[in-house]
Design a protein around this nucleic acid. Structure first.
Lengths: 329, 329
DNA sequence: CGCAATAGCGCAAGCGATTGTGGAATTTGA
DNA sequence: TCAAATTCCACAATCGCTTGCGCTATTGCG
């Protein structure tokens, strides 16, 4: 069913059909009605691909995600997706592999997407540049990369890390350890830097550190390693919630320690599971709804003005206190 | 950058460029090389939309999801997405609202998708029909709808429910309750039917029932209600894991009961969190990888043969025993 | 009532590719 | 060596739509 078929049935020109389906185009009510009648009789639906081709606006936005295991990403993905849909855009979803990101980008560009959202902490920077050079705005969530024209939306990870340190020190912890995410990710760097600087403000240094690479298994091993050392931490700041759950499981089930009596735990993200009573995880909130809204504002503004300008939004961090941290009294 | 630009630079016809980028087309090595050289010099990438239009194959598959809160869906979504990408298809993602499904379908059809995957438990049947009538194969994951030409992939929910009943009875439970998901979803109906029939095999009936609508909050309320009645259950079968976590939280934190000593809990899905030690949830596995693989096989077979035939795959259920059920001795 | 302005429509040129057709160049076979 | 068979390429039609242009018919205004 094409617009020509509809035009024939409605006895109008094909362009009249087109205009009927183009908001704001000049059509009389009479023709519009005849066209609509014919269209619904034939079950006609405009071909979005043809429309995209000629108008140069595909209304397609690509979203790249590395993994959905960490609940933060599904939540963000849902928010992004709903917001884009509400604005009349479609979401092309791509899962990236650690290795084959080039192929992914090649495909994205072929589909004439008007913008790219990267909601993932593991994405190379030259990849981002490649997109920006093509004139397609890129917004990265939860990560920024220097020397790129890609915009970014992050929470204030440095301040967040600092708040964690401050809170742990104030609540009387002495041997405070850190479990890192992916070493060279901006989130990890910033959270760690803020954390150390917060400790330093109180004249402390970190009393142990291991690396969990943002995975559940990695965090499991990191915890075993951390707690097998001579000095046992009395608090652990874990670079994200997803790892923190693994940490808590190991501490309680394997090591037989109590949380928070023996060890306090703080995570980062405030994913839904953090509020589940079995964990009650104290954590730093990253408001996914807010981040998604911000990312989409930045992206669509550029899409609609057909410009690429680098913007970096940093949302305030907020400590969410639950039961996983021992407080005096 | 269009194929014409490349053709000019390479001093060949535009169709030569096209054939170079069409696997299996007849081009000499000499021309292919010249075209490739020109293409990479210009940074040319074939326009997938134009290609889709003329060839009638968009290589676009729509995936509909209602929500990503329940971790089962992100996991399945990731598997589906990766598998489709590997086969050279792109994923158009749509989040459905409880109300506005018609608009979603209208959009999907406009984008000339070649197939639709519905990985969600809440999707109307006439919606599915609308797609099938357009000649677009539809595969539903984790749900089936009668009077539809939509295919489906489910686990054997009836058998799964029966296994749960059998296991609970054999482990000595007497007052066995059920917390339902969405009442009219096929998953809930089947799990509940199988469960009751399993109880009946042992001469038992359910000793309590409330409805959680597959949401965390719903399950929280359902649990409070269930445990405020005179007869307290000694085991609860919860229609999915996502609700089961809420149930366990209420039982332990609000009611001060122990799991499994006072109450045993069984869920359904075996989402990643079920294996977390804080829950150790006994559950029925739905193998997301297997379901995704199956769904894609069924869908792509129809896409490639350009036929729509109803198929219903039922994968075997498997009980995963963890610590949330009290066992004698 | 007359003329300018405007609204509404049809015509036709694309958007960037695929693909059938036919012809030139090359290869094959006797 | 020459006809027949291939191979490879260019030509041109086409996919379904948007949109600038120009024409007609209507409207507005003095």
């Amino acid at each position: 069913m094409t617009s020509i078929d509809v035009a024939k049935l409605a006895e109008v020109s094909q362009s009249a059909v087109s205009r009927t389906f183009t908001p704001g185009a000049s059509v009389s009510d009479a023709t519009r009605e005849r066209v609509m009648a014919a269209a619904s009789e034939l079950g006609y639906r405009p071909n979005a691909l043809a429309r995209a081709m000629i108008s140069g606006r595909s209304r397609l936005i690509a979203i790249l995600v590395a993994y959905l295991e960490n609940q933060f990403y599904p939540v963000v993905l849902e928010k992004l997706s709903r917001a884009l849909q509400a604005d009349g855009y479609q979401v092309l979803l791509f899962m990236t592999d650690p290795g084959g990101q080039d192929e992914v980008v090649r495909r994205i560009l072929q589909y004439q997407v008007q913008g790219i959202l990267m909601a993932s902490a593991t994405m190379s920077s030259n990849l981002a540049n490649e997109c920006a050079e093509t004139g397609i705005p890129v917004v990265m969530l939860n990560r920024y990369v220097a020397n790129t024209s890609a915009s970014s939306v992050t929470s204030d990870n440095i301040e967040g890390g600092r708040m964690v340190a401050d809170f742990l020190v104030r609540t009387g912890h002495k041997r405070i350890a850190y479990i890192a995410g992916i070493e060279d990710s901006s989130t990890n760097r910033d959270r760690e830097a803020g954390f150390y600087s917060g400790l330093a403000d109180h004249g402390l240094v970190v009393s142990g550190r291991s690396v969990g690479n943002y995975t559940f298994e990695g965090a499991t091993h990191a915890t075993r390693e951390l707690f097998s050392r001579p000095v046992r931490p009395d608090a652990v700041f874990v670079a994200n919630d997803h790892m923190a759950f693994a940490v808590m499981d190991v501490i309680r089930s394997e090591l037989g320690l109590r949380i928070p009596e023996d060890v306090s735990i703080i995570g980062y993200d405030n994913v839904p599971e953090a509020s589940w009573n079995a964990y009650g995880l104290t954590t730093v909130e990253q408001h996914p709804e807010e981040m998604a809204r911000m990312a989409i504002n930045i992206l669509l503004e550029q899409v609609e003005n057909r410009t690429v300008t680098k913007r970096a939004a940093v949302l305030p961090a907020k400590l969410i206190v639950r039961s996983s941290v021992r407080t005096p009294g």
